[in-house]
Structure formats: structure tokens, C-alpha cells
Design a protein around this nucleic acid. Structure first.
Lengths: 378, 378
DNA sequence: CTGAAAGCGCTAACAT
DNA sequence: ATGTTAGCGCTTTCAG
């Protein structure tokens, strides 16, 4: 645990530098107008004493704590984590620290945390969590701004940042169309899930715009590989023809890929597969790796944090904000480049732009992945 | 973002209740000796004013902030997250809040965060991160106690809490022995990895105690499914007989299971598989689900937090602490219960089993998911 | 340009 | 049992 060192204060620094505390404070914070010489002398003293002035006393003096709370309403995981990281990133850069609170799906805990955060006088709160449906507001009339990230609030006046899942699905479907697929099947998650219905509807809508429809109604099931396999079984035995499968998530996609391969269908030559989530471990290690919609959760979290900061500074943006999804293209929808020098991390075949040489589509270019954080295509 | 409410203070409460601030403070904190009537009156006033006294001013007054920092040295993930959650859990119960800092593998960021935390006058610090090898201490002679969780420190005087991987391996091997397997192969991760070597050695040691040895030297490779499949291929073509495979992690295990099944070996009847990590998504959805060693990361985090709290209270426990691993038994080492009750959530259309057509599979019932999350070994 | 002094929200001695 | 007072570490007027 290491020996402890006495903690010096600004007063100590002032003494060492032979100035008053007020002066020392200004010097350390770059405020006020001081002679340069004084400023450096103070800083030097601070360095010697190993003093870091921070929000400790500042908070009580200035009314702001430079601190925000982040409450995950369900146990943190694949969804909340990237959101959290994004937010932490954005806030950290803004000199704010983040209090982490894991509500563990328990409303009591959640309220307890809310109280704790308020008692600590955080400057703002971010609420996040895996969403099934919009949640009840975490509190009414709170003294600090709140933004909901990923998960929505049932109160439309609340500030939320949500992934544009429908937009993501559209990008994916457009990609399938661009590579000439028109007979698209859709293996979905559980029908009760919001996301599941939303994604199905978006797919159907986008196809309708081309005068197409899914080869079967959405096949609702579970978010599992097993369901992906089973659904493909059903599809195959139904003798319906299809040249692409849009899967509600990557696990389903992976199961589907396995089952298709086992049945002797080539992916993507015979059947292309489109996943959702771009969950690396699933999408990349699938055989073949899956093209998938990425919700940009980290970006979403970052965005939520920025909106919160604006709110803290008195510029609230109430209401619903959508954050765009990207499409990450892998081999389940493109022929791999055999000769491509594969970097361990990269997407082989990313440069192989799908030849829009195809049917029905009025050859508008593929809206290739929103690029920013992803598609390193180049 | 909701309307803001003016934030009332203890002084306001005191005024409303018609007492002095001192008294109000005592009432609100259950300290000192007050008439019950006064206490309730004050509390009532606080409720009305929506006042929560918290560590805001308390910190500056008492010298303690009731706050600890948690630094993940690498980007947070499968390892750090459960550790974090455990710690957060233990600390939250102790009324402490946690500052989350993700070092992103960047020593600069890490040091920046360290400074930030110290400037916020946290009471203590937990350092965590995916370990490859013990790391350099995050700082020397810090003014607060530090405990390293999961990841070790190169300074033996530092307080660390690490998983007892060797113990976990021993439990696993003992389980294999208990089900009558003696010809055990070992597919390991990369040889450079600490964990990899450690797990291999532990396996060999435990077998040696029975006068046995691995059927081949540890096969070092990568932590991937692909390697699991390849290694099984090597094993099979070598014609060495084996009735169990201890895999360095669950991904390897999963690949091994796939390859064995494809080659017509029954798991677990012909070959039992033991994984490591008990990474739910891998172990549970493998076919069959994998028996695996669980490092109890959440418990480890909780333990680290408790040790830190003790340290903060003046009872440091420097040095290395080992946290026990558990064995979670699934079907890769046991014959499945055919009559197992199905949960509603799972597998719609379970009767249509496409994979039944795959070569050599003796169609035993669908490997039902691991059910009990933690069946610990006897 | 610098120092003195007041005060942020709260606790902890010490008086009453 | 309650009130008074003096800080905690720091910022911020406001005088000098």
C-alpha cells in the first residue's frame, strides 16, 4: 500500500512561494493578472510540494463540482459499456469526472444512487441501460440536467440520445440491394422486443420503396445462434428461394451462416448475410465474418455527454436525438480478396466495393458506412 | 432536461426548522444527542426543502471525500468490467462513490487520471486491467492506499488481489480425473502469455501428482476458436489417443468442440472438454456447452474493495492476495439430462433441427443451456 | 500586480 | 439538548 505522504495544500504552496493564498490560487488556475515571474515561482513551489489543486475545495467554493453521475439502469454490459466509455471520454476531456453507478435493474438501487449523486451535488446525470422499451423518467424536476443515452425516456420532454436503428437497417438493406440481392429473408429476435419489431419494420419499409418485399414475413424467435440455425432450417425446408438473409443480430447471423454452410450453400455467393450490432467477437469470428450494422455506441455516449455539458452550461436540448448507425462490411456480403495483405485488424475486402451492376436498383451509389469511426476502407 | 429547482442547503433547513446549523447537521447525520422531536422536525424540514446533505461540504470539512478512484489501465472489457462491478458494489454499500477512469492502455492518460484522482482527494485507488504480466506500480509513495485488482504490480510490497488460476486449473483437472479421463491433451494460448504458461504448468503439475502426464506437451497457439480447431486437427492426425482436452480458454474450447464434432468424436462421451474463463457467451452457446473455470472476477473486485476500505481505515494488507476460482460444470464433461425442463425464453421451433444432419452426430438431445449459472464443483 | 478577508456547505469542538 | 465558533481547501471580491 505504500507509505503515505502528507498532503500539502494551496496554503502551503503560498507559504513556500512567499505569496498569499489568493495569489497562489490565481497562479495555479491561470486566472487574474500576475507577473509571469510570480506565476512560475508558485507553480514551482506546487510542483515541489506535489500539490494538485482540484475540485475538492473548489466545488464547495464555486458551487460546481465538475462531476457528473452516470447511472446504468440495468447491469452494465455490451450496450452500456461502450456508451459509458464514450461519455467518460468526452467528459474527461472536459475536465469532469464520472461517478459510476450500476443500478442492477433494481429501481430501489437506482433511486438510492440518484439520491447519492444529488447529495454529492453532481453537475449533471447520464442515464443509460440496455433498452427494451423507453423507461420511466428517473426523477421529476431534478435540480440538474439529465440525459438518457441509448435507453429512452417515456417523457418526450426528456433529453434522449438514441441509435438510429431504422437508418442502420436501411443502410444494410441498401447494401444488399447494391450487391444485387432482392430475395431477402429476415430472421428476427423476439417479437416482444422493441428493437426487433423496429428493425423488421425498417427492413420491410426500405424494400417496399423498391417495390420489393421480404420473401417471408419476419421470422421472430430469439437473439441466439441456435435460433439462427433453426430459422435457416425452416427456410431451407420451405423451399422458398432467397439470396440474402437479414439477421436481427450477429448471433443469429452466425448461427445462420453455420447452418447455411452445413447445408451446402455458399456464403456470400449463394446467400449473403447481414447482421446487426457489429459485436466484434461474433461478427469477426463468424465463418465468414459478418457484414453488420454498428450502432456506434461509443460515439453515442460521447454525444450524450456533449449534450449534457451543453445543458450544464445552460443550453439544454430537450427531446429525442438520433445518432447514426454505420454499416461495417465484411465477407458475408462480399467476395474475399484472396491476395489482400491482411492486417490482423482490418476488414478484408473492404475495398471491394460491391459492383452496383445489379437489378432493379436505380444505381445510386452505396451509402457506404458513415465512415467516421469505422469503415477504414480507404 | 426538466426545470431546475434551487438547491437548498443545511443552513436553509436549520432556518426552517428553527435550529442552528450545527444542530441541523447533527440531526441529519444521526450524530450528537438531540431530542427526538428536534430530530424529526429537522428531517421534516429537509424533506420539504428537498435537501440531501452529502459529501460536498463534508469532504472539505472532514478531510475524507468518501470517494475512491478506479483506474482501468487498459480499455475496459471482459476482465475489468466484472472486477469493476464487484468493487462498485462493495464500495457503494460502504457509502463510497466511485470515480471511473479508463486509461485506454495509454500511460499518459493513466498518469493524467492519477493526478485528477489525487486532486479530487479520493480516499483510495483501485487499479485494474486485463493482465498480460504484472505492471509497473502506478505511482510511488502516493498519499492514499492503492490496491491492484486482477492485474498485479511488479512491486511485491504493493497490495494486489489476483485470481488463483493455478487453483482453478487444478479443480478442472481433478474433475476430468473424477470422470475417469486420464489421457488429457492441452491446447494452450500463446506461449508468451503469462496466464497461458501458468495454466499449462498447473495442469501438468496436477497430473504429475497422480503419476500422469499430458498426452503431448502443451500446444501453444492463440486464444482463438480457429486455433482450437487447428489444434484438434493436429491432435487427430497425430493419432495420439486422448479422452479429454483442457483448453486454455473458452474460445479454444469452442473451436475444439466444433472440430471434434465435425470429425465424428462425441463430446463428452469420447472426448471431454474443459475450458477456462467461463465466458458465458462462449461457454454456454458452445455445442455442447463447456465446463469451464470461472475466475470469479466480481468476487475478486469486491474483495479488492474491501481490502482497500480496510487500508483507508488504517489497516493495510500489503502483498499478494489470491482469490479462488470455481469450476462450472456443463455438458462438455457430463452427459446431458434429456428431460431437462425448457425455459420459455429459448428456442422456438426446437423440433426442426437442421444441425441433426451434420456428419457423425449422434443426435443426443439439444444441448440445453447451462441452466445453473454457477454449479460449483464438488 | 498582490494581499486581506469573506464565504462556499458542512462538521466538530466547545460553550451554554 | 442546543447554539456558537472555528475551520476544511479553495475562489473571489475588493482594497491596497
Amino acid at each position: 500500500m505504500g507509505g503515505r505522504e502528507r498532503r500539502a495544500t494551496v496554503a502551503d504552496v503560498a507559504a513556500l512561494a512567499g505569496v498569499s493564498v489568493g495569489t497562489a490560487s490565481k497562479a495555479l488556475n491561470g486566472r487574474g493578472s500576475l507577473r509571469e515571474e510570480t506565476r512560475t515561482r508558485v507553480k514551482e513551489a506546487a510542483r515541489q510540494l506535489n500539490v494538485l489543486v482540484g475540485p475538492a475545495g473548489r466545488g464547495v467554493a464555486s458551487g460546481r463540482t465538475y462531476t457528473v453521475g452516470m447511472i446504468t439502469t440495468d447491469r452494465m454490459g455490451r450496450i452500456s459499456l461502450p456508451v459509458l466509455m464514450g461519455a467518460e471520454d468526452a467528459l474527461g476531456a472536459g475536465q469532469m469526472s464520472v461517478f459510476l453507478c450500476d443500478g442492477r435493474d433494481d429501481p430501489i438501487r437506482e433511486q438510492y444512487y440518484l439520491k447519492t449523486l444529488l447529495s454529492r451535488r453532481v453537475d449533471g446525470i447520464i442515464v443509460t441501460g440496455r433498452r427494451t422499451r423507453p423507461r420511466a423518467p428517473i426523477g421529476a424536476n431534478l435540480p440538474v440536467p439529465v440525459v438518457y443515452a441509448y435507453i429512452g425516456s417515456t417523457d418526450p420532454r426528456d433529453c434522449t440520445v438514441e441509435p438510429d436503428e431504422a437508418g442502420g437497417v436501411r443502410k444494410g438493406i441498401e447494401h444488399l440491394l447494391a450487391i444485387g440481392r432482392t430475395r431477402i429473408a429476415h430472421i428476427a429476435g423476439p417479437e416482444q422486443h422493441n428493437s426487433s419489431r423496429l428493425r423488421s419494420a425498417a427492413a420491410a419499409d426500405r424494400l417496399a420503396e423498391e417495390g420489393l418485399e421480404l420473401v417471408t414475413p419476419p421470422m421472430f424467435g430469439a437473439w441466439t445462434e441456435t435460433w439462427g440455425r433453426q430459422a435457416v432450417g425452416i427456410l431451407l425446408s420451405s423451399r422458398i428461394e432467397f439470396d440474402a438473409v437479414f439477421c436481427g443480430n450477429d448471433q443469429i447471423g452466425r448461427g445462420a451462416a453455420d447452418a447455411l454452410r452445413a447445408a451446402g450453400r455458399r456464403v456470400p455467393e449463394d446467400v449473403a448475410i447481414l447482421g446487426f450490432d457489429n459485436w466484434d467477437i461474433m461478427a469477426e469470428y463468424s465463418q465468414p465474418p459478418l457484414t453488420s450494422v454498428d450502432m456506434n455506441l461509443t460515439g453515442l455516449g460521447r454525444s450524450a455527454a456533449h449534450i449534457l455539458l451543453a445543458g450544464i452550461n445552460g443550453n439544454p436540448s430537450p427531446g429525442r436525438h438520433l445518432y447514426p448507425c454505420d454499416l461495417v462490411i465484411r465477407e458475408s456480403t462480399t467476395v474475399p480478396l484472396l491476395s489482400a495483405p491482411r492486417t490482423p485488424d482490418a476488414r478484408p475486402g473492404a475495398d471491394l466495393r460491391p459492383e452496383a451492376s445489379v437489378a432493379g436498383l436505380t444505381g445510386h451509389g452505396m451509402p457506404l458506412a458513415g465512415d467516421v469511426p469505422h469503415a477504414s476502407a480507404g
